[in-house]
Design a protein around this nucleic acid. Structure first.
Lengths: 131, 131
DNA sequence: TATTGTTATACTCTATAACTATA
DNA sequence: TATAGTTATAGAGTATAACAATA
């Protein structure tokens, strides 16, 4: 799986564009969830960008109807962000394309693919694949 | 080798910054040569960007003394671009860093590294590694 | 008239700083 | 006073369109 992700990395911008998103917004979409709203500030941390950029990216996702801001239960300063139903659907579609074996891997034997995955799992960064 | 390039791809921006270049300019530098000047228009094709952006990128390289515009022998409309001696030296330094085994590969056994290279050579895009 | 490259300009994405509203 | 998020603004890097020089 990691092998596929590594191979796919080059195609991020194209895949994003095919959904009308820029790479940053697609990255954002893939790290959001419908069930676990996350605060804007925590997103700035995990996306490693400025808070003002989180505002901008979430605006883009909201424009597409893919994510929505919600109120925090106990702190009225905080806005949380979660995927809409449509957002979850699009995220699933993107993941399907990301995890589908890319052209360049179709020529590999099953044995080679296994070997490749095994090796790349070893060198994958801690915390799993990062987009 | 391809394996290393794949693994290194993430570090492009950092390496570029350490030479005072942006990723685009580093990409440009690595595809230029001291001995084979290339026309601006052909560079627009191989870099897959607009001609006006080639002007901008070559300007950046010239500011650093890494590349220079030359006259075409027979067509006075055409400008060709080639690396300066300094540019060739910097390109070699960058390549040395790109081809050095990255951290993430140091943990692999020699056998795994061989296997990885063999597999990735198979799926490498025709025409060799692209930056 | 067509082509090469540049210039003028606008757009996208990112960051910094000032601001509003809560705490 | 401090924190969460937004807005205003600036900058890098990209593209489009108009232009000058040459073919």
């Amino acid at each position: 799986m990691t092998a596929v992700l590594v191979a796919r990395k080059e195609q991020f911008p194209q895949i994003a564009a095919s959904f009308g998103l820029n790479p940053g917004a697609m990255h954002a979409l893939l790290s959001l969830d419908a069930d676990e709203p996350k605060s804007m500030s925590s997103l700035a941390g995990s996306w490693k960008c400025d808070a003002s950029n989180v505002t901008w990216l979430v605006d883009r996702l909201e424009e597409h109807g893919l994510a929505e801001r919600r109120l925090h239960a106990h702190d009225r300063r905080v806005r949380t962000v979660a995927l809409t139903r449509k957002g979850a659907k699009v995220r699933a579609q993107i993941e399907a394309r990301l995890f589908a074996p890319p052209e360049s891997l179709r020529d590999l034997s099953a044995r080679d693919l296994d070997t490749l995955c095994r090796i790349l799992e070893k060198i994958a960064p801690k915390g799993g694949p990062r987009f």
